[in-house]
């Protein structure tokens, strides 16, 4: 169970990225975080593992208050949160296996990681994960020799190697073609189900979000404007999140949307109502 309480982030430049976000994500739930660029999606998931320091507010992972941890405690807590990145963020010049084993860095001593001597159980598990994401024969290749979809699979396996309780996923399909994007999303859902993992997935593609997420949180200008099931993403709600657009024309949303004519003019009022 991950809980955010009045989480606020103001950057040094003065930009308010997140304001008073409160959110609870129970174990096993896969939550899609949607919203326009600059809405604070990336900042939100980076605040959870404190790659970005929140300005105020509190975050709990089960009974552990992440926002109060010192350096050492934070490193230990980060092991419990696997992160998957936009454009993979693999260490390009290391082998696939080294990238996978880097998920174990929080568990092994500096010296054994320096000479690349990981415990046999870690290596066995890494191979199992590599097999799970279908890249068994690529273990010794360098990460920059893989295709985009393959790299993101390594990214997922690296996060899983941490044996996390929750996945923080930042735009996993941002640089992938539509088919590969769907494969990656499916893989994410599957591994979450297999391991009972919760996940927060930043995603810009509404169709993918509707198809693969259990719950959607819509973010606009640093505030939550929608929180509910994927079926609730009506054109009206999308307008509220992203601004006015002819949603019906770009998707099959008109099937489920109650209003065939999107574009509620009075958005501000609706935000206030939520």
């Amino acid at each position: 169970m991950l809980r955010l309480e009045s989480l606020t982030k103001r950057y040094r430049t003065g930009d308010l990225a997140l304001s008073e976000i409160s959110l609870a994500i129970p174990a096993g739930q896969v939550v899609g975080l949607i919203g326009p660029s600059g809405a604070g999606k990336s900042t939100l998931i980076r605040c959870v593992n404190r790659l970005v320091e929140p300005t105020s507010g509190r975050i709990w992972l089960d009974d552990l208050e992440l926002t109060r941890l010192g350096r050492r405690g934070l490193r230990h807590a980060r092991r419990r949160m696997g992160m998957i990145f936009q454009e993979y963020a693999l260490v390009e010049r290391l082998t696939v296996m080294e990238n996978l084993l880097s998920g174990r860095l929080g568990y092994v001593s500096f010296w054994s990681s320096l000479i690349r001597r990981f415990p046999p159980a870690d290596i066995e598990n890494a191979f199992r994960l590599l097999d799970r994401v279908g890249l068994m024969e690529h273990a010794d290749k360098r990460a920059d020799a893989l295709s985009g979809g393959q790299r993101q699979r390594v990214g997922i396996a690296r996060a899983l190697a941490q044996e996390p309780e929750i996945l923080l996923v930042d735009e996993p399909t941002a640089s992938l073609d539509p088919k590969t994007s769907r494969q990656i999303m499916r893989l994410l859902r599957e591994v979450c189900a297999e391991r009972g993992l919760a996940a927060i997935v930043n995603i810009h593609d509404v169709l993918l979000a509707r198809e693969f997420m259990m719950r959607i949180v819509g973010l606009r200008a640093g505030a939550i404007v929608y929180d509910g099931g994927p079926d609730g993403l009506t054109p009206a709600v999308l307008t509220e999140i992203y601004g006015e657009e002819d949603w019906a024309a770009s998707s099959d949303l008109s099937d489920t949307g109650p209003s065939p004519r999107p574009g509620v003019p009075d958005t501000d009022e609706l935000v206030g109502a939520l």
Partner: peptide, 9 residues
């Protein structure tokens, strides 16, 4: 399936 327990760069 059995997976290798040793790996060297």
């Amino acid at each position: 399936t059995r997976y290798p327990r040793h790996w060297r760069r």
